[in-house]
Simulated scan of single mutants.
Amino acid sequence: MRIDKFLKNSRIIKRRTVAKKACEQGKVLINEKKAKPGDSIQVSDKITINFGNGSKAFEVLKVKDNVAKSGASDLYKILD
């Protein structure tokens, strides 16, 4: 699954266009490498998002195309 779609489906970032911009600006890392919006992610990948005042790290637990809002947090684990 594409990283921008995963960020939207998991509700880490609310909109896919915002996730795409974050990737293009170099704010998203997959396994310590800068991510492009179309990069693929797999289970056990580490995603780091750099915000203005800090960063958050997540581990991918599941990859699903369609997720209900209540099940979105099951897709990842917060590592910080």
Rank of each mutant, 00 (worst) to 15 (best):
P37N: 08
A57K: 10
D39N: 11
K33D: 13
L61D: 09
E59A: 04
Q42R: 11
S73A: 14
D45A: 04
G38V: 03
Q42E: 15
V63D: 09
V63S: 08
K56S: 12
F51G: 11
A68T: 14
K77H: 11
I49H: 04
G38A: 15
Q42I: 00
T48H: 08
T48L: 08
I30K: 02
E32N: 13
S40P: 01
Q42K: 15
L29S: 07
V63G: 07
I49N: 09
Q25H: 14
F51P: 03
V28I: 12
K34R: 09
K69P: 01
E32Y: 03
N53D: 15
N53I: 03
D74I: 00
G54K: 01
F58L: 05
N31M: 03
Q25K: 07
K56P: 01
S73E: 15
K77N: 14
S55N: 13
D39C: 02
A68K: 13
V67D: 08
N31V: 02
I49M: 05
I78D: 12
I30G: 01
K46R: 12
D39A: 06
K56H: 02
L29I: 01
D45H: 04
C23N: 05
V28C: 06
S44G: 00
A22E: 14
A35D: 01
D45P: 02
K64M: 09
D65T: 06
I41Y: 09
K36M: 03
L75E: 11
I78H: 09
N31A: 02
I30T: 06
I30Q: 02
E32S: 10
K64G: 04
A57Q: 14
K27G: 00
V67T: 11
I30W: 03
S73D: 15
I47H: 09
K34F: 12
Q42A: 14
D45I: 00
S55M: 11
K36H: 03
V67L: 08
E32T: 01
T48I: 12
G38T: 12
V60C: 03
S55Y: 10
D74F: 01
A68S: 15
S40N: 13
L61V: 06
G26I: 07
P37W: 08
E24L: 10
N50P: 00
S70C: 03
S44V: 02
I47R: 06
S70P: 01
G38P: 00
K64T: 00
L61N: 02
K36S: 06
I78E: 15
A57D: 11
L61Q: 08
V43C: 06
L75W: 04
E24G: 02
V67N: 09
V43N: 11
K27P: 07
L29W: 06
